[in-house]
Design a protein around this nucleic acid. Structure first.
Lengths: 232, 232
DNA sequence: TAATTTCTTAAAAAAATGTTAAGTAGCTAA
DNA sequence: TTAGCTACTTAACATTTTTTTAAGAAATTA
């Protein structure tokens, strides 16, 4: 049985990398092996993977930095980190980036295999991402989320900060519909707690200020649920 | 911000269990602590949980056996195992049952927290959230349970509170049929006792007030059983 | 009839949001 | 290097919304 699942393995130790690659190959995964973060990112961009296994400690570009870059391009691909030592800080950073798991070397290969299976067998998640679209028109505004510029018909235009931009983009993508708080927090702030939530409220206030140029547009709150960008 | 996520923690060491429970409680999770597999399964069946943390080594009924029973009833709830030693066999069995993760004692509490967040923040899988119905028509009303708006034909519309909304949704889904009190309490209040029951009565009264715009609709009480939304 | 359950209203308590401003950290240019 | 800029977070206080609790009346059941 061929699993036909494709895994990107980034590991700087060539011996260990080779052995791991062979082991996973025997178990019906298609493995692309990169020896450092730079090569890893190149390979990642060249083809489509189902999972990444990243060593954290690597020369040139470490696994966490690589993970961040990967997350910027693809926000849902599962990431497994390998740590040489049980460095708590690295582990926590990894989770913050959006790791699915981490393993401390030396680890048992069967356990890695079990983890991989467990992750890949998960039901596919809803992909909310719409990567290519970055120009939007709504109300009297046009909004370029790549340049982070919000322009009003009359000529006024605002440069948006990264967070303002992401939040507005999510609101616009869900125009007239609910943008759940948790979803936005986990996507933009990568964590949902009291403080990130308050921070989000501050950003909502900022966006409201921009949008008040068009009186027909409103960001309304659905108490306890989230926000909704709508037009009368 | 209240996370309102409910976790079933099954751990036979009372000291450790208590400390872990407190730690997670501080971090805004609602914890139900059971001291063995038998009690764990009882608690699991009594209310709705978002996640289970199971110690493997326990008297009477070990964590793996409990996990199997839980899986028979609920095939998607995330499971985290705690193992006293790094017993490979247990770990593999755990994954086979459908564990999301395991942690070897002693573990760092922050890491457990990161894992919990990571698991709970996963995007909802396709079959649960996405296909969810949230638009209903009944009597002279249309009801959007996502935006929590109940609209009467004449144009009147009400913003519903989260609890009003959930309760109405359950009534509508069981239109003309009995909605058992316990079911609703466990689902919405996540607990069935005297106080939640009184609270539910209050909400029933509120819903009746909204619905009286359409005289043909009624929420009738089935004494000792529950409520029934019906139309003459 | 006594015990239990439900109805209703009001008040109290808890939680979430709106808004402004101060604090902080990182970056950049003089 | 410092001063200034930007983005973001945190604090503080006001306000709104939601939920719980209490308590007496009414209804139902045994």
């Amino acid at each position: 049985m061929k699993s036909n699942k494709k895994i990107l393995l980034v590991e700087d130790d060539p011996n260990f990398g080779k052995i791991l690659k062979d082991y996973l190959t025997i178990n019906n995964y298609e493995i692309s092996l990169a020896v450092n973060g730079i090569e890893g990112f190149e390979k990642f961009n060249k083809s489509e993977f189902d999972l990444c296994i990243l060593d954290i400690m690597m020369p040139f570009k470490d696994g966490l930095t690589l993970a961040k870059e990967i997350r910027e391009v693809n926000e849902s691909i599962p990431l497994i980190f390998l740590t040489a030592k049980n460095l708590k800080d690295d582990v926590l950073k990894g989770y913050k980036i959006g790791a699915d798991d981490y393993l401390t070397k030396p680890f048992d290969s069967e356990i890695l295999l079990a983890k991989i299976k467990s992750i890949l067998n998960r039901k596919p998640s809803v992909d909310t991402e719409q990567k290519d679209i970055f120009e939007f028109d709504f109300g009297e505004f046009s909004f370029n989320s790549k340049l982070r510029i919000l322009t009003h018909k009359e000529g006024d235009s605002f440069k948006l900060s990264p967070k303002e931009n992401q939040l507005l983009k999510m609101l616009v993508l869900n125009f007239d519909d609910l943008l759940p708080r948790d979803i936005a927090l986990n996507k933009i702030w990568r964590d949902a707690n009291y403080f990130t939530s308050r921070s989000m409220d501050v950003y909502i206030a900022k966006l409201r200020k921009y949008l008040e140029k068009d009186l027909s547009l409103k960001i309304i709150n659905v108490h306890g649920e989230g926000f909704r960008l709508m037009q009368d």
